[in-house]
Amino acid sequence: MQRHFADYIFRSYRKRKAINALMCGLLVLAATLAIFPLFSVFGYVVAQGYSALNWEFFTAVPKPVGEIGGGMANALLGTCTLVALASLIGIPWGVSVALYLSEYGGKQGRGRFAGVVRFSADMLSSIPSIIVGLFVYALVVITMRRFSAVAGGLALGILMIPTVCRTTEELLRMIPEHIREAGLALGLPRWKVILWIILKGSRGPITTGIMLSIARVSGETAPLLFTAFNNRFWQSGLDQPIASLPVQIYTYAISPYDDWHRQAWAGALLLVMLVFAMNLLTRVVFNSGGNSKKQGGN
């Protein structure tokens, strides 16, 4: 009897250990396979794009069709312009909605209207970006009768709103209610508590969220196709068509010219590095700066 029981214990433990090892192995495999695409995309883009990266690429505008050379300086500046416009629209708008959802919105954001807004934001974030582009096309491009940087910036800005809004809301909610009460108990009006204590108190993580959403939209192509359109020259005004890295890459990639293909790869490399640098910067600057101490109370 004793003997049997011991056998049973050891056998079942051996079996459990084997299953444990197998499952752990599967998880490690899944994790490895998940980062594999990232590194292979990155490696491939570097390999293909590296050769076309040179000084001219960063400083010159595209040459006329048929001529070898030229660069993407206008597209680089265009992307920066579009992202700046998008940020001007998306950040204040998104943060305002987040403040409404977490701090007001009827009973601290539990009201019915707040629920509708939150649901809409989630819906908006899952709408294909090309639909947003179409919407802005109908709203702005047709009205202005031309493609423009403003239209492109608006399309990207609209795409930023839900991500900025929802991440900011989550972060504001992480600040416990008694911190707000402590502010109110000092005889401060609620808006001052929200702006200077709650929002300021979580500015690090919120900036991280915003930077990530900027990185996200800076690579968007579809919403720009019929809003910002493209431009082979330096931009001439915010009400004019404007070049951008993603659209330029797209245009060059589907062209029949080898030189343009090489430039498309170089553009892709530049875009990937830009996004990568933004992510890295965000992490280094905002996550190391005493973030563990930033969460209030206990």
Binding site: A182, L186, G187, P189
Partner: peptide
């Protein structure tokens, strides 16, 4: 708001303002 300047409060959990 004016009343709360005259009547202050200390809470159960210590709650210094984060990031300040």
């Amino acid at each position: 708001v004016a009343i709360r300047r005259k009547i202050g409060m200390v809470f159960q959990k210590p709650n210094p303002f984060p990031s300040l």
